[in-house]
Amino acid sequence: MRAPLAIQLQGIVVIVGNYGSGKTEVAINLALACRRAEAHVRVIDLDLVNPYFRTREARYLLKAHDIELILPPAPYLHADLPVLSPAVSGAIRSPGPLTILDVGGDDVGATVLASLADAFRGHTIDMLQVVNPNRPNTDSVAGCQAMRIEIETAAQLAVTGWIGNAHLMEETSPDTIVAGYGFASELSRASGLPLSFITAPMALVGSLGDEAFDCPVLPIQRQLVPPWLLAEKITVPDSRTPGGATDIG
């Protein structure tokens, strides 16, 4: 059995995608996973268009894991106003080992990136588009590509890779992940852009088998849950027991 492929990202990573593609859940879990290897990880909540289920909802968790989070000023955390803190451009100018930008949905959400062009200048940027083929509008390669062009036009930045985030919330099965991987691979071939990684619920990772995929798999432990569910307790995969995990609180 070969060792799991590792996600290798550095510098500025911009997470974009259509509404509800799962950008925020990916950004939170990606930050937690990368923090295990990197000395410093920073997340910028750049979602200026969504009113609920934003990175700011996980602010205490990220803080507890020593991840820096840049948010709008506290009085405006629950506002539906496009509040862009000056700390954002400062953080982009000095990204450190890893700075993840969680951007709002669609071209509307990505528009803010164009206003940060000065801060981005001179930096290499990974702009990764999250796709879930179980969402309307991105259930076809053509739909994802159309969304990509809309986002690139609004952001004035080019998408450099894909994140396959196929799921159906609690109804996600191994078949959902395997079919989603097939879809993301086809999208990667058609677009000529790499598939950076796919995601899978932590509970399913063990049953999937690493050999099935030619890209890394980011295990997801759901944090943005409605009030009747509990957020999953963050654990790190245990390499000694396939599918096992160690609680880190």
Binding site: G20, N134, D139
Partner: peptide
């Protein structure tokens, strides 16, 4: 099959 939708989108559809 099932699709994953936000309540607001689903209401429109």
């Amino acid at each position: 099959g099932k699709v994953l939708m936000k309540g607001n989108e689903a209401i429109g559809e």
